[in-house]
Each structure stands twice: as C-alpha cells, then as structure tokens.
Design a protein around this nucleic acid. Structure first.
Length: 634
RNA sequence: GGAUCCAUCACCUAGCCUGGAUUGGGUGCUGGACUUCUAAUCCAGAUGUCGAGGGUUCAAAUCCCUCUGGAUCCA
C-alpha cells in the first residue's frame, strides 16, 4: 500500500548497489512540489556520495532503466520523467484510487492508523493539563492549554497507547487568598445563585475587586515604595539601614501595608486550619471548581484524576529526605536543602526546602511525579505547560532523572497567547474569558444560521450555532504550531471565512447535501451498504473515467492521510492534521465547483459519489481527532 | 550578569528537526462568477533579496558562527 516504499524497492533493484539501502532511498524520495506534474521526485545529487558519480549522470542512467518492460512490471508507476538531476515519478492514480477507497470503505479508523508500526506493548502515558488556579475563571490561554492536552490524549490513543488525563487544581497560596479577602470585605453573603452568575466568574469578580483595591491603595504608598526600592538598589555600603527600616514601617502603616498584612494573616490562618477561613476557602473553591467543570463539559474534557494542591503541597519532603540520604541533595547549615547542577542550560543550584522548613513548588512537583507513578505506573509523562516555565521543568526533569525515575518526561511547551495590548492579565481585566468567547462566537454563528435558515426551531439553531462556534475556536487554536506564541486579535480571529473551522464544516455539509439531493431525485447512493456495488464501481474501466485534476489531487490527498496521521501524532503536532483537513476541504471545494455530480451519467456519477463519500469519511475522522463536530446542513 | 526561544509579502501563517527545482496557504486589496449539487463558496490579478553579515555544501528559508531586533526565564 505504501507506494513510496515500493518505489524505493524498485529503485534499489535498479541500482543494485549495497551502499544504497531501501531506507535511505525512502528518505530521499520526496513529495513533488505542487507546481510539478508528478507525485514523487528524487534529486539524484543525493546519491552522488554513495555512487561516486555526477548527479546528472545518475539521473540519466536510472531513467534509462525504466524501459517500457520495466514499467509494465510495476504498473503503479505511470511515468518517469527526467529534468536535470531530478527524476519525477507519476503514479497510476487509478490503482491508488481503487486501493485507497476500498480501505476507506472497509474502515476509516484502521485506514487512518494503517501506517503506524506495530508495537508489542502499548505505552502508558500520563498527560497533565490545564492546572488552573481556583481564584479566577478560565481564559483563552487555558483554552489553548485544554485543547492541546485533549488532542494529545486522543492522538495517544490513536497510536494505540494508553492515556491517562490528569488535572491539578492550584487551590492554595496567597493568590487564592486574594479573592477570599475581597469576598469577606464586599461579598455580603452573596452567592453565585443570588447573583445569577456562573460560579467561577463569581469568584473571579472578587479577584479583580481585590486587584483594584490593591492598586488603588498602592498609589498612595507608591512614593515610599519607590524610595525604598531606590535605597535597596544601592550597594550595601551606601545603604542607609535606618532609612530602609523607616520606609518599611511607613509602608506597613499605610492602607496598602495593612491590606498586605491582612492577606498574609489570612494565609497563616489558612495554614493553621482556622475554621472560618477554611470554610470560606472551601466554599469559594467549590464555586470555582464547579465553574471549571461546566467549561470542561463544553469542551468535552474529562480527566481520569484531579490532584489537589492543598492535599499534596507538603508531601514532597520524604522524597527530599531520601535524596539527602542518597547524597543527591545537600542540606545546608541554615537548614535549607538544595541541589547543585553543573550542566549547561540549568541553573547552578536550586532550593528544594527553604531554611524555615517550608517547601516550594518544585518539592510538590517531585511528589506529584511519584504520586502519578503510583497511580498509573506510566512510562511517559507529558506536562502540557507554557513555554515560560521551560526552566522549571528542565530542573524538575533533571532532578527526577537523578533520583532514578525510569520514565520519559516530556514538556509539551506551548506558546503564549497575547493580546494586541500585550499580555493577558486577569487582575487587570485584560483577559479573553473562555466562556465569553464561546458565547460571542455562538452569537455570531447564530446570525449566520438565521440568515440562511430562518424557519428552524430556536433549539436547532442554537445547536448548530454551538457546533460552528466551537469548530471555529478549536480550529483557530489548533491550526498554529503549538510552540509558537501568537497574538489574538478578536476582530480578525473570529472569522468564519477562509482558513477556518467553518470552512471545513461547510465542505462537509456540501457533501451531505449532494447525497440528500441525490436521494430526492431517487438516485441510489451506491455505497450504502452493499459492498458489491463498490467493487463494481471501482473496477478499473470505471475508474479510468477519472480525469479531472481535482479528482487526482483528491485521491492523492486521501492516499496521504495515514502518513499525515503518523506525522502529526508522532511529532505531537496537531496543526499538521488541522492543515491537512483544510487542504482536503479546499481541494474538495475546487472539485465541487468544476465537476458536476448528479447530472453526470450513472457510471461517472457513482464514481464521484464514491469519491465524495470517501472524502466525507476522512474529514469526519480527522475532525473527530480534533474533537470538532460536523453538521450535515449549514 | 547567565540561559532559552523567535524573526518569512501590507497583515497572519506553513515549510526549518531530516538541506535539493520559480517558497505554500489565509486575510486584506483589484476585477469577475448565484435560473445549474448551499456564494460561510469559487476563479483571475498585484505583492517575498525568507531580519543583516559571514561560513559549510554541487545545492541553504532550512545546518554552523557573529550581529541587530523582540519574547521569556534564572540571578
């Protein structure tokens, strides 16, 4: 089925040279450029070193070997053309069309994963995402985070590995106290219900409230803060200690200082398990979590397990003690525990336990890694985390490595989403809220649906609008390389035209529409479900009716699907699949415009219907991997 | 002070790992196509010394070095 390999075999036979392996040939056989009328090509200069001959000469010789006799023996090769050092191979689309479509009709699923090499034991892979803080609702950054994590999970399954999706709720710490503080001050016992607000948004409201209050009070203390910073920046011998203390006291006495003190006290009360504080904390965290779960539901995200920071944040100490015993970590005289590195790309040292005995994030992360191991016995762990944390994870992985953990750790380091105004900051209100953007897109989609189908029930309209909105958002996020930062411009990003999810859905709906029209005209849809019909249609003499450029391109695209899947999945690059699906939809639309189907004679009509159905199945399958739903009408 | 990542048409982006033929899409712009399977569409046109300089190579957007500019992290 893999014609590239078969071509490599043929070439190897021709060359009959031990220094040129089939594997090497497969590597240098490249897809021909779009503007060249061929499927695959090799540049014979690539063989120069092995054959110790000029590239142009090699090309001529190989070309000569493709006598008509030889081509007859290998009917899948239609033509071999020479162009300087290039040999351009054109495959017989009819043979390919037959094989490809038969397989797609048999089972798209197994067709899609047909190019994976078989492994004996599936891997066990843990994927962690999106680890939100419980003091504010999810935003666009989390959406990227969620969609990448989710898609990776599906990809993992597609490659026949076992996946375990886990989440981590960051539910403690000073930042969590912020929304609590504001609720105590302004909450007046209001609840999400009483305010008719989504519960995580309700919590987020108080987080912003705090930030506003803080920045307002900070203004009054700013002068003194500036002085203090100036004084601290001086080198030690010039610092005026009395002045520093005086400034600190002044700041502490200001309203800003009092606020900071109250916040700290709250955290201490939390640590000491003060009932009042803990109750409030539990209440607000539940609100946040419930809200998250609703958003997860919208995006169809399910976790196998959710770890809670407040349950584990103290637990890393055992690991640290073990590390000290093994001599991997070092306990300093002041009580702090550190690890020293002497590797490039790593800091010189990292503190694991502060001198006051409190642990840091890294301590907790170490524990979590072992906890996951206990829970899932994984051999690979993927951390879907933004690229701003590259260093932290490098450190974490190095420590795990030194501790002797036998598993692959992968930082799936995705890029940040920024706004035109700069970074998204919840506390300044410059965020694109996850729920809001879905709502906004839905509204836009609703308008479009109404324009076309004004007599639909409201329920149906909303259903369609939601599918379109989510397709648009998902495709928009996934079509970019995950590692790149990008700027989100709401005006430009929320389009349904061009390189978008709705474009693909539209092509899909058009295929469905063709079938619908065919049924209305009592034309039997040939593929359903009698397979005998298919083989009849796919007979060579019928297939030779294919002659349009679009048809050939489509067959080629369908043929390359398993390859795309392997590339996309193995490299963990969902955008490769996303762009392929767009290309397929685009090619289909070109075909749609230039080739009529229903009014064609039955033989060609059936063939084209079959082609359409193949495209439809692949589109649906591919979109499914990206968790994008389809519509039969839009 | 130390480290990592990035730079491609007016704008966004793919290609870079694994070097190969005039870089591929999209938006926007100009013009054209709805009595024919849905115009959320299609067709045509203009726009690129792939940040700058050097090196490796028969061949560099792609690999290496330097510089400039931007993002991030650590101290």
């Amino acid at each position: 089925m893999d014609y590239k390999i078969r071509l490599a075999e043929v070439l190897s036979e021709i060359l009959n040279n031990s220094t040129v392996s089939i594997q090497f040939l497969t590597q240098i056989i490249k897809k021909a450029k779009k503007n060249i009328d061929a499927d695959f090509a090799i540049n014979c200069f690539a063989l120069k070193k092995n054959l110790k001959q000029d590239g142009l000469e090699i090309a001529k010789e190989i070309h000569k070997s493709f006598s008509s006799n030889f081509l007859n023996q290998n009917p899948f090769i239609q033509t071999v053309l020479i162009d300087g050092p290039y040999l351009n191979f054109k495959f017989n689309k009819i043979i390919i069309a037959n094989e490809v479509m038969v397989q797609i009709f048999k089972d798209v699923n197994s067709y899609a994963s047909s190019n994976f090499k078989k492994r004996e034991k599936p891997e066990r892979i843990v994927i962690e995402y999106p680890a939100p803080n419980t003091n504010k609702p999810l935003h666009l950054g989390h959406i990227r985070y969620m969609l990448l994590g989710q898609t990776l999970s599906i990809f993992t399954q597609c490659a026949k590995n076992e996946v375990f999706q886990v989440n981590l709720l960051n539910d403690r710490g000073i930042h969590i106290c912020k929304s609590m503080w504001a609720y105590v001050k302004y909450g007046e016992n209001k609840t999400p219900k009483s305010e008719n607000q989504k519960s995580d948004h309700f919590v987020g409201y108080y987080y912003i409230k705090f930030a506003q209050e803080e920045s307002r009070l900070k203004k009054y203390a700013q002068k003194n803060i500036n002085f203090l910073e100036y004084e601290l920046k001086k080198s030690p011998e010039y610092q005026n200690i009395d002045r520093i203390q005086e400034l600190r006291k002044t700041i502490d006495r200001s309203k800003y200082g009092i606020l900071q003190k109250e916040l700290k006290d709250m955290l201490i009360a939390w640590e000491e398990e003060d009932k009042k504080v803990r109750n409030l904390w539990r209440k607000m965290n539940d609100w946040a979590e419930n809200g998250f779960n609703q958003t997860f539901e919208t995006f169809k995200i399910h976790h196998d397990k959710t770890y809670i920071e407040s349950n584990i944040y103290k637990k890393g100490k055992k690991i640290v003690e073990n590390g000290i015993k093994k001599g991997i970590f070092e306990k300093l005289d002041d009580g702090a525990v550190i690890i020293n590195f002497n590797k490039k790309k790593l800091p010189k040292r990292k503190v694991l336990i502060r001198k006051d005995g409190t642990s840091l994030y890294i301590t907790q992360d170490l524990h979590l890694a072992y906890q996951k191991m206990e829970d899932f016995n994984y051999n690979k762990s993927i951390y879907v985390i933004g690229n701003e944390q590259d260093m932290q994870l490098r450190v974490l992985f190095e420590i795990l490595n030194k501790l002797g953990m036998k598993a692959d750790n992968i930082h799936y380091s995705y890029g940040m989403i920024n706004l035109i105004s700069g970074k998204m900051k919840s506390r300044e209100g410059t965020v694109v809220d996850a729920d809001d953007i879905v709502e906004e897109l839905k509204l836009l989609a609703m308008g479009e649906v109404k324009k076309r189908y004004s007599n639909l029930s409201k329920n149906e309209m909303e259903k369609r609008a939601m599918v379109i909105a989510l397709a648009s958002l998902r495709f928009f996020i996934i079509k970019y390389d995950y590692s790149r930062d990008f700027v989100f411009d709401p005006k430009k990003s929320l389009e349904f035209e061009g390189e978008t999810g709705p474009y693909i859905l539209y092509s899909y709906a058009r295929i469905c529409s063709i079938f619908k029209k065919a049924m209305e005209k009592n034309i039997k849809t040939p593929y359903d479900p009698i397979e005998d019909n298919i083989t009849e249609i796919l007979k060579i003499e019928n297939l030779s009716l294919l002659e349009n450029e679009h048809e050939f391109n489509l067959i080629e695209l369908l043929y390359s699907y398993p390859d795309i899947i392997v590339n996309s999945v193995k490299q963990m690059k969902p955008h490769v699949l996303a762009r392929y699906l767009y290309e397929l939809a685009q090619e289909f639309t070109g075909f749609y415009h230039s080739c009529p189907i229903i009014k064609e004679n039955p033989k060609l009509r059936n063939l084209r219907l079959l082609l359409c159905e193949s495209i439809r199945r692949v589109l649906k399958h591919g979109l499914g991997l990206l968790t994008i739903d389809v519509l039969t009408e839009m």
